[in-house]
Simulated assay, not measured.
Amino acid sequence: MGPIRSYFDQIWVYGDPAIHDPLRTGEIPEILGSLVRYTGYLAAGRVSHRRSTLLDKPYVLTMAGGGSDGLALVLAAAGAEVPEGYEHLVITGPQMPMEHRRLVQCAAGPGTSVVVQTRDALAEIEGASAIVSMGGYNSIGEIMSTSTPALIVPRTEPRREQLIRASALARRGIVDMCHPDDLSPELVADWFRGAAGTRVDRSGIDLTGITALALLAADLLATEASTPERRRAHAAV
Rank of each mutant, 00 (worst) to 15 (best):
H20S: 13
E27M: 09
T227S: 11
R46N: 05
P94I: 08
L42E: 06
L122S: 03
Q10C: 13
R160N: 13
A236Y: 10
I143C: 01
A77I: 09
V36H: 04
A150R: 01
G209Y: 07
K57H: 14
I11D: 00
L207A: 08
L221I: 13
G2T: 14
C106P: 00
I11M: 04
T92A: 03
R101E: 12
M177A: 04
G127M: 04
S203H: 01
R37F: 10
S167Q: 13
A166L: 08
G67L: 02
L213G: 05
S52Q: 15
L73Y: 02
V104Q: 00
L23R: 09
S139H: 02
D201N: 12
G67V: 04
L187Y: 12
L23K: 03
A214V: 14
A128C: 04
V200C: 08
H179M: 12
P180F: 03
V47S: 15
L89I: 06
I164P: 00
A217N: 13
G109R: 13
V36T: 05
T146E: 03
I164M: 10
R155K: 10
V74E: 02
A121Y: 00
R159Y: 12
V188Y: 05
G26Y: 02
D56I: 08
A18I: 09
T227A: 13
L215M: 11
M96P: 03
F8H: 07
H179C: 11
D182I: 09
L35D: 12
S34M: 07
A195V: 10
A166D: 03
L55Y: 06
P97A: 03
S167F: 01
V116L: 02
I131K: 00
V153N: 06
I152Y: 02
V175R: 06
A43L: 07
G135M: 05
V115K: 03
R102G: 04
T208Y: 11
L55H: 01
I28T: 08
S52W: 09
E186W: 15
G141V: 03
V237I: 14
M1D: 13
T211A: 15
